[in-house]
Design a protein around this nucleic acid. Structure first.
Lengths: 221, 221
DNA sequence: ACCTGAACACCGTTCAAGT
DNA sequence: ACCTGAACACCGTTCAAGT
């Protein structure tokens, strides 16, 4: 049944190389694993990704490095498991919300979806913040954000110049549009960014941004 | 004037620790730096982030490790500079498009913006693909994508059940919505994800998704 | 049977020696 | 003046020895 508990963290296909070395068979093992998970999050928040060494995690969890390597074949597998646990939590909440929201009017669908996703993130905010450090190097993130900010400023100027409308909260509108564009592009690159995928992306993003801008603008008198 | 060339890659504020150690003063230096940039991209594409070692980049660029360290104080600064060069290229194109698109009708704004951004990415596709490897670990990305796919499936089911409409291309609509939601959330976490920022995000994302769903659906007869 | 931690391989970074 | 690459520190990972 503790094996059960572990398996509930594994709803996605896990590459063999990243599988945990053994499932916990004794209650003590499960406790140890919990301690390792918690230690990983705490070390990440305190020291950043670069300070996340196997020795430090083991020390904070109160076990030896060797013991950690009995559960996880390498550091990557540990990070993978911790990240997976969080993503699964969020996906569970989204799934549940989508099920209980069935049959609602189209105008309500966005609320159901966006709400469930963000609620789940906020509910485990510590984990969410720590885990984003796994994927995003801090220096690199700074650079990305600076680039996005610059793009948002470009977009603001463009929106301010619209022939037929003005926007109430220009910065916010530009930020929303550009975050979506840049964010989903990044995901598309995660998928390999084939030429046709990029074309699809462009068509749908354009539609989405256009409809949003039309809702958000005030026609000029 | 070659200093000029280098500075054109630096439109963002660069943390001191990440500054290149010296600007190239001789033509040969600029060539060497170009070779290092190109070598970095090629090694990244061929070996992945984990295979990107200073020795390998130096070897491929035809210089010694020591020489590389004359230009960049550490590996991170090299990655930073290469990434910056690409992001600057994209932001330049977006800025130009936003300027030349001034005064157009609101319905055209999304095309200008999305088009310029994606065109710039495609124009330097090799660099774009290589550089996303800097920020995104491949194993981790797989996990994120699996989670997003699961969320997209949840959303598809929800959308299919809408009381008042049906959707032509359910999967694509769900994918667009969820990529935007997950992508811009990730960016928000990059900014620190304060409580109020998350509230703003939710409000605007909801609006954006709702307007998109309304454009994309066919009312039931 | 399970845990420990010194030992090993490898990578980022330096700096004495070479030209 | 500038380049080289052996040498050093440190981290991930292993495995002989201990309980």
């Amino acid at each position: 049944m503790i094996v059960q508990l572990w398996n509930s963290l594994l709803p996605f296909a896990v590459p063999d190389a990243l599988k945990p070395r053994k499932s916990p068979r004794q209650a003590r093992s499960a406790t140890t694993m919990g301690a390792i998970f918690e230690a990983t999050i705490q070390v990440l928040l305190a020291e950043g990704e670069r300070g996340l060494t196997t020795t430090r995690v083991a020390e904070r969890a109160g076990v030896s490095v060797g013991t950690m390597y009995q559960y996880f074949p390498h550091k990557q597998a540990l990070l993978y498991a911790v990240l997976q646990s969080h993503l699964t939590h969020v996906a569970d909440k989204v799934e549940a919300a989508c099920q209980s929201g069935r049959g609602q009017a189209t105008s309500q669908l966005a609320d159901v979806l966006v709400g469930a996703f963000l609620d789940a993130k906020v509910e485990k905010l510590d984990a969410a913040k720590a885990l984003y450090l796994i994927a995003e190097d801090l220096d690199t993130t700074t650079l990305f954000l600076a680039a996005i900010d610059r793009n948002i400023r470009s977009a603001s100027t463009l929106f301010a110049s619209a022939a037929d409308a003005n926007f109430e909260d220009l910065e916010a509108v530009a930020a929303t549009v550009f975050s979506s564009v840049a964010g989903s592009t990044r995901i598309a690159f995660g998928r390999g960014a084939s030429a046709s995928a990029l074309l699809d992306l462009r068509r749908e993003l354009t539609l989405m941004c256009r409809s949003y801008l039309e809702v958000r603008h005030r026609p000029r008198r």
